[in-house]
């Protein structure tokens, strides 16, 4: 009896140590895959830096930030571009719900910035459906939707609710050891922002178009996105997405984006540091069309 107990305890200890070791290398913690970083600067030096870090965060623009970039460029609102809320019933896999949680959050952020009040409520409910389907507890509660309705003309409160509900989702996924799902949510939001931006560009006003500049800026995030996904490499859903995003990277690589060295200057008036630098960019209409077509193809595969 004692012998059986000792063997049982030993197995338990080994299993527990195994779980501890696994939890130490889970997504979000530094992992072999996360060390994959392709950038314009000295790769070896960056790899050395990453080796030193206990934890590496790859921060994509959030859906709210993506929507704000569209609004700040002066682009208009077009409801036809959004993923219809009626599609929410079609998403039954974790992958489709995660991607569309990001997509609906971007759509609701876009609607909120253009004061599309009823749409905002509808899209918050669609996002809630996705979060509930993923088992994300208390990410978006009925009280959040009620609060939205009560503050429908208060943009500051609306932005706060959108930001808070998104943080509830991604913190839940992070803390419940679901980095692959968290990455897919972020990818969904980012691709929707890119899709909306490319669709809203007026080709008659291509040169000097601020929205085009914002699209070029996304070249700076493509490696961050690939690194984020690589943290969950081996997951079949993620591997498929890496393949799709790699196609986008190939097109982004055709865009020129050269930045001069950054000079920090403290501005007394605003009590902020201004990071001064000049940038030279070049994207031909042909490359833009290629990028727009690919962004549409990927996004439409996510929402179908």
């Amino acid at each position: 009896m004692n012998k059986i107990f000792r063997i049982g305890s030993g197995i338990l200890v080994v299993m527990s140590l195994f779980i501890m070791l696994c939890s130490g290398c889970r997504g979000g913690k530094k992992s072999e895959q996360e060390v994959i970083r392709v950038d314009m600067v000295d790769k070896t030096a960056i790899l050395e830096d990453i080796e030193k870090a206990e934890r590496v965060f790859q921060a994509l623009p959030s859906p709210l930030e993506s929507a704000m970039l569209i609004k700040s460029s002066g682009a208009g609102f077009d409801q036809k571009l959004l993923n219809p809320v009626s599609n929410a019933n079609n998403y039954v896999t974790s992958k489709s719900m995660a991607l569309n949680l990001g997509i609906y959050t971007c759509d609701l952020s876009y609607a909120s910035l253009y004061e599309q009040t009823q749409l905002l409520i509808d899209y918050m409910e669609a996002a809630k459906k996705m979060a509930d389907g993923l088992g994300i507890l208390r990410a978006i509660e009925q009280k959040n939707i009620d609060e939205l309705e009560q503050n429908i003309n208060n943009s500051e409160v609306i932005m706060k609710i959108v930001s808070e509900t998104f943080m509830n989702s991604n913190s839940y996924l992070e803390e419940n050891d679901q980095p692959a799902t968290a990455s897919m949510v972020l990818l969904g939001g980012w691709i929707e922002g890119l899709y909306l931006s490319t669709k809203l560009v007026n080709m008659n006003n291509f040169d000097g178009n601020k929205l085009v500049s914002r699209i070029i800026d996304q070249k700076l995030s493509i490696d961050i996105l690939l690194n984020l996904l690589s943290g969950s490499k081996g997951n079949p859903a993620i591997d498929e997405l890496i393949s799709e995003v790699t196609k986008l990277k190939i097109v982004f690589d055709k865009i020129r984006l050269d930045t001069s060295p950054v000079r920090p200057v403290y501005d007394e008036a605003s009590e902020a540091t201004i990071l001064r630098s000049e940038v030279k960019t070049d994207m031909t209409p042909e490359v833009f069309s290629e990028l727009a077509a690919l962004a549409s193809e990927i996004r439409n595969s996510f929402v179908k």
Binding site: F57, Q58, L69, F166, S171, L220, I224
Partner: peptide
């Protein structure tokens, strides 16, 4: 406006974390 992203970790004295993010003009 908080962007809605969440980055937090348990760190010990002497430990480092890194974060990569794109920031936009305007």
């Amino acid at each position: 406006t908080h962007d809605g992203n969440y980055h937090a970790a348990v760190l010990m004295e002497g430990e480092e974390a890194e974060l990569y993010k794109t920031f936009y003009s305007d």
